[in-house]
Each structure stands twice: as structure tokens, then as C-alpha cells.
């Protein structure tokens, strides 16, 4: 009788542990010795600059990009230029790929990446900003709130 209760207890604990494990299974990735190429400004300085040039793009922020990941190496933030669409597309593939992501807006021809007139001619930064709130270029002439949500 006692033995059976002990067995039962062990089984209950085992199954709780099993289920708990399943709900909390997080991968344990090991640190690697790989580093990004050295930059002119030390990493600490780059982190500091993030206060002056914060990211307003939630996804980019989550990925924790340094200035140099987007702007390339530089000595002085003053010499940094805004990004061209070619630079965005080094990570985002090509305009077609981006347009496919918002293709649910194609029906009314208001896909911001492949719309009625501008097609793929616009610079990404005409709408998406990194350090300032984004805007929607189409809104210069149209009420875009009936077409699409605000620009991320």
C-alpha cells in the first residue's frame, strides 16, 4: 500500500515535470567565438550613440542592429548619410519580395510597395524612417487611412 502510494507520487511528479518541461522548453544556445568585423568606433561608443539615434522600428530594435550594420563603418556620426533603397534591399531582398508581403492590398491597387502610379520607384525612406517617426508618402495627396494602416 505505502509502496504503491510512493510509486504513484513519483509518477505524478514525473508527469508534472514532463509537462512543465514541455511548456518551458527553451533552447539553450551556446555562445560562440564569432564576432562582427572590427569597427573604427569601439562597440561601447556605438552603444552610446543609440541614445542619440534610437530606432523607431520595433523589428529592427528587437534585432539589436548596431549603426554599422546599416550605415557601414564611419568615424563621426555627422558624416553618416540616410539609407538608399538599395541598402534596405540588401537585407529585404528586392522590391518584388517586399511587395509580396503587402500583396493583400493589391486588389485596390494601393499596395504601398507596388501601387497605382509609383510602382517600385519610391525610396523606402520616403515612408519608413529609422530614427524619426515614419510617414506615408501617399498621404501627401490621398487620405491613406482608408487604405492601409500606419507605416511601421
Amino acid at each position: 500500500m505505502k509502496k504503491l502510494l510512493i510509486v504513484l507520487g513519483v509518477l505524478v511528479i514525473a508527469s508534472i515535470a514532463f509537462v512543465y518541461e514541455g511548456m518551458n522548453a527553451k533552447e539553450q544556445s551556446k555562445e560562440t567565438a564569432v564576432n562582427m568585423p572590427a569597427t573604427t568606433l569601439p562597440a561601447s561608443k556605438l552603444t552610446e550613440l543609440q541614445k542619440d539615434y534610437p530606432s523607431k522600428n520595433d523589428q529592427h530594435k528587437k534585432l539589436g542592429f548596431d549603426c554599422v550594420t546599416c550605415h557601414g563603418d564611419f568615424k563621426d556620426p555627422k558624416e553618416v548619410l540616410p539609407l538608399q533603397k538599395e541598402q534596405c534591399l540588401t537585407c529585404h531582398g528586392d522590391y518584388k519580395k517586399v511587395a509580396k508581403r503587402t500583396s493583400f492590398l493589391d486588389k485596390k491597387e494601393v499596395n504601398p510597395h507596388d501601387g497605382f502610379h509609383h510602382k517600385d520607384q519610391l525610396d523606402c525612406a520616403d515612408c519608413h524612417r529609422e530614427h524619426k517617426p515614419s510617414v506615408n508618402y501617399c498621404a501627401n495627396c490621398h487620405d491613406t487611412k482608408v487604405w492601409m494602416k500606419s507605416t511601421p
Binding site: 551556446k30 555562445e31 560562440t32 564569432v34 562582427m36 539589436g64 550594420t69 509580396k100 508581403r101
Partner: peptide, 30 residues
């Protein structure tokens, strides 16, 4: 290289943080 440099650190990112379109041909949102 960026992925590996972050791996195991506090700001680790995953394959899908970047590859959001794999597995379902990028069609899920649509």
C-alpha cells in the same frame, strides 16, 4: 556572422527573426 556574434548572449536572435517567410512561402499574413 551577425547571428553567430549574438548567439548565446542576452540579445540572441533566432533564424526566424530574419527568415520570416520560410516554411509557408511568406503567405501567412496574406
Amino acid at each position: 556572422t551577425y547571428y553567430l556574434s549574438k548567439k548565446g548572449s542576452k540579445q540572441a536572435i533566432e533564424c526566424v527573426s530574419c527568415h520570416t517567410n520560410v516554411g509557408h512561402n511568406g503567405e501567412l499574413r496574406h
